[in-house]
Nucleic acid binder design. Structure first.
Lengths: 138, 138
DNA sequence: AATTAAACCTATCTTTTTTATAGAGTTTAT
DNA sequence: ATAAACTCTATAAAAAAGATAGGTTTAATT
């Protein structure tokens, strides 16, 4: 499962994407709209900002906004940023690989093989679906 | 990521499946072979036994063994048993569903939609691949 | 019958991660 | 100057993961 942090990030990003025209959006507005603790959300938005996904404006009239169009922000990027690996096992992770400590030879491990397939199927979706694809339907 | 518990379970099950002919297998043998803490593994095997996946024999000459042929044990079952939900969000989980607390209408939520697709793609593999499919290749 | 090998059971402990909060600091519009 | 808003760092609380401990029960062997 995705952590609350990543779940909240998605909902916040959706809110920002659905209000592109309204200029910088307040943390407090997102928190209220999406039912998220304001202080927790603050940290999350800061992380997204430091990663270059969001921009911000301080002071009166300030807030957060997307740095790029929603269709350029892949879901996989958000997950990796806040939750780390997407793969089910360290030994099949593309970005956070670690050697398997329980099997003798990964090249011959059937578990490694199946989990690679799961990773590929998952990434095929998460790398290609973007923020634009998760905005409210209709 | 799968927990260590589930990872250990898979490696233990692989060992049991690869030694079907040898009668009951000792916890200590699996622990040594797969480099797993023996006491931790003990708890895991017990859980698998209580779920009906393994059988055991007590006393001298005892040990653990599979209750069914490897090809009848789907990987999804093991994961759900030890780790819980396979889906990335509670609101798209088939077996551990919980209502989304951050969006107003799941029927119209694009995130729900995409994560359902990820779940389907993952389950298509994990429900169909069995213990037999993860035995050592060659 | 005694011994020994093995799983069974339950509790506890430690560590790590997750989730959340606090509060002072900095920037900017008015 | 003031107030509104993000920034930063620290800490705390809760939950989960990972691991260990130690006695109990069962059964084969001697």
């Amino acid at each position: 499962m995705l952590s609350k942090k990543t779940q909240y990030a998605f909902h916040a990003l959706i809110h920002l994407a659905e209000n592109l025209d309204k200029g910088p959006i307040l943390i407090s507005e997102i928190a209220q709209e999406k039912n998220i603790s304001i202080k927790f959300l603050e940290n999350i938005l800061l992380e997204l900002k430091n990663a270059g996904i969001l921009g911000s404006k301080k002071g009166k009239g300030g807030g957060y906004y997307l740095m790029r169009p929603p269709k350029e922000i892949a879901l996989a990027r958000i997950i990796r940023l806040l939750d780390g690996p997407i793969a089910l096992l360290p030994c099949v992770s593309l970005n956070y690989y670690e050697r398997c400590e329980n099997c003798k030879d990964e090249a011959v491990c059937g578990l490694n093989d199946v989990m690679s397939k799961v990773r590929d199927a998952t990434l095929k979706i998460l790398e290609n679906k973007t923020l634009k694809d998760i905005l409210t339907r209709n």
